[in-house]
């Protein structure tokens, strides 16, 4: 119904109300500054994928699906399998999304999530080699964003991680002639730690986690920090034209560790529930 415009414009009087509330440590939807919206994770929803998960973060809805294929390694990493994370903000997800190839926002989304998974060492890519330098397993994680209501980075990140954790891949054998024989047996994709991203928005002097669309439309700066089990940081991305103070960044790092651990438990529970 709303006429197509490039981006969402928040009503001034709602924005004024938001700023007033933030000063008191509250948000428009009743959350406190460091509260996430309800996180709902459903695994194994796409039977044709090797692994899959839908994440609903408030009204943000994303689906991640994992496909495992056999491919050639990159020439500079002949002893490593491939991992590709690709997210698409589908035109059905928002009145502001357009059909067509991913724009810079969607590409940043893919890359930030990819970095979190890759740098955490969650997937040991060296275990995915079939014939060094020639044939390796390629892990494609594709994400379809179905409904946009802010914080796509975290929703996508949790969906990707949950999908990888539920991934089953066929047992492959290398025959004498160098051919690949697929067995009818399936094994889990080997993974170790669970990377969890925590995204913050700065609005004025307030730092909040998990911004929704309205909060994103007025935020000055954004920062995503990803931690591994135990709390070490493994990836980060600051976004938007505004800056952050030293104290704000240190506070975010500390909070990312605490929140990350809470969310890691939610992911583990969702994955465990499908066996």
């Amino acid at each position: 119904m709303a006429a197509a415009k490039k981006s969402f414009i928040m009503e001034h009087l709602r924005k004024a109300h938001m700023i007033e509330l933030l000063a008191k440590g509250r948000r428009l939807d009743g959350r406190e500054l460091l509260d996430y919206r309800p996180i709902e994770i459903k695994c194994n929803i796409i039977q044709k994928a090797n692994g899959s998960a839908q994440v609903n973060l408030g009204n943000t809805q994303v689906i991640a699906g994992v496909k495992i294929e056999v491919g050639a390694p990159f020439p500079d990493t002949p002893d490593k399998g491939l991992l590709v994370v690709n997210a698409e903000i589908l035109p059905l997800a928002s009145p502001y999304a357009e059909p067509g190839p991913p724009d810079e926002e969607a590409i940043e989304l893919s890359r930030v999530v990819d970095r979190g998974v890759r740098e955490s060492g969650m997937i040991d890519l060296s275990k995915l080699v079939l014939i060094p330098g020639q044939k390796v397993r390629a892990v494609f994680v594709d994400v379809s964003v179905l409904n946009v209501d802010g914080n796509l980075i975290d929703a996508t990140s949790y969906a990707v991680v949950s999908a990888l954790m539920t991934t089953k891949m066929p047992v492959l054998e290398v025959s004498e002639g160098g051919g690949i024989v697929e067995k009818a047996e399936y094994i889990p994709l080997p993974f170790s730690t669970i990377p969890v991203s925590v995204t913050f928005a700065r609005i004025g002097d307030s730092l909040i986690v998990d911004p929704d669309s309205e909060e994103e439309s007025v935020m000055d700066a954004r920062i995503t920090l990803t931690t591994v089990e135990g709390g070490h940081l493994c990836a980060g991305q600051k976004g938007l034209a505004g800056g952050l103070t030293y104290e704000q960044i240190m506070f975010a790092a500390e909070t990312a560790k605490i929140k990350g651990q809470e969310i890691r438990e939610v992911i583990k529970k969702a994955v465990a529930s499908v066996g």
Binding site: M1, Q47, L92, A93, N147, D149
Partner: peptide, 26 residues
Amino acid sequence: LKNADGSAYIELGKNKIIVAVYGPKE
């Protein structure tokens, strides 16, 4: 779907399809 003006979901066999309608709009 929350953002769409109209939406529906169908499963038929293994098909899982989600549809959104936006409009009428400019």
